[in-house]
Design a protein around this nucleic acid. Sequence first.
DNA 1: CCTGATGCGTC
DNA 2: GTCGGAC
DNA 3: GTCCGACGACGCATCAGG
Length: 473
Amino acid sequence: MEVVCNLLRTVIHATPDDLLPVVYLFSCCIAPPHEGLEFGIGESTVLEVVADAYGIALDRIKEWNKKDLQIQCAEQTLLAALGQAAMYNEEDSKLPPEVQSPLEEVSHLIEISEKCVIARISSSDSFLQGWSTMLAIKVGHGEAADIVKQAYSVFPDFDKIVSALLTDGVWLLPKTCKFTLGVPVHPMLAKPINCVSDALTKFKGIEITCEYKYDGERAQIHYLENGLVEIYSRKSERITGKFPDVVAAVSRLKKIIVSSFVLDCELVAYDRAMHKILILQELSTRARKDVGTSDIEVNVCIFAFDLLYLNGQTLLQENLIIRREHLYASFEEESEFLQFATSITSNDAEEIQKLFDKAVGARQSIDIMQKKPNLMSGSKTVFEVKASDLTCSSEYPAAIGLVNPDKLLTFIVGGGDFTFSIKGSLRGARLVAVAKMYKAQEQRKESNKQSNMTNEDKDGDEDADKGDHRLSR
DNA sequence: CCTGATGCGTC
DNA sequence: GTCGGAC
DNA sequence: GTCCGACGACGCATCAGG
């Protein structure tokens, strides 16, 4: 924590322009999730790079990978290893004496990087903690962390948040970075419990509200003033192209008075002839890219359960009951296309149990959930902000670097930038960059080691490491 | 052109 | 989505 | 309790190889 704090402090003082890259470095991503920028590096890629960098046959690497090497979380591992390797300084650059073969060296790097990654990621939002702690120190207040977290949960865009922080400071953050149409807010997730009575115990004395949790795909639908529609998935990926029918339905079924909205809903496969909900598996057979309205085979019904934004104004500060009223008032139900999620508000155990049984009995794939207490008690705090809301997507946990708009891939490591221009396809270009990076690092270490070894022992594959190089935790 | 391996998203 | 370990 | 990783099933998208 202190290290993170000092790092950020130093960056802000010395090279404020680097703050954004550093923030991305810490937050394990290269762009806001809805922009769809990804590294696209998987396990096989890592193996290729490793093979290439060491001049070892790919087949052999693959064999090792099966048995001894245990490369997991490929992208995270490799990138972290690269970053860590690049950060070696004179004192630290010595490999342990037992590390002899290239394979062991790779394993060693992976091991180091694993620690690095764990240290960073396992403290949940260490980046934000450091951030906010630092800011809190700066302004002599302990609330900074919450403000930053709140801002990010509602407006997950570091580009804007960082620049707003630098120019206007943390206290204005709620104003400079607020919920914005077209930027998906982190969805509120349900938390599993064992039975209805557990929930009642937990929420004792608080009025609660319950609703069906339909078995489909979570969607957050943004409708802009100009009629443009965007749909975002649970992980804030833009999935508009997968659901042209939903775009049409939502445009048609919004009431006249509605000029813009953000609808939180579940997209459920639906048999319109039979008026029947279909299982999730049916939904998953839909094509995903550039779907035309005419070639849709599996229809969906929108089960709407929340309205986060309406006619130019956020509803996030309202409680769930109010938001529901807005929801009901803003759309026409049409059973084949859009339905409101079945719900009741009650603290009577039997009534709730009845709804639960109905959900289970009538439609096997539907269960029931309870919203968070502050959402149903009329509290002003609508979207509870937790550390988990800030967790980066697990898919790309350790992106070291970022892709600039001008198509440069930049690695920010070891106090220096390594920039490679992108040629050809993005994917291929990234691989080249990674490979170059790796080789450059190799050379650096080579010259550091000097005295040791005449050359890399390319054939040093004998029995590799029996030690525990696995990435266990 | 088809096919299997791989990647990656959904739950 | 579930599970279980760490705090 | 909370957080966060590992884990599983499934199906589309993509691409290398035949």
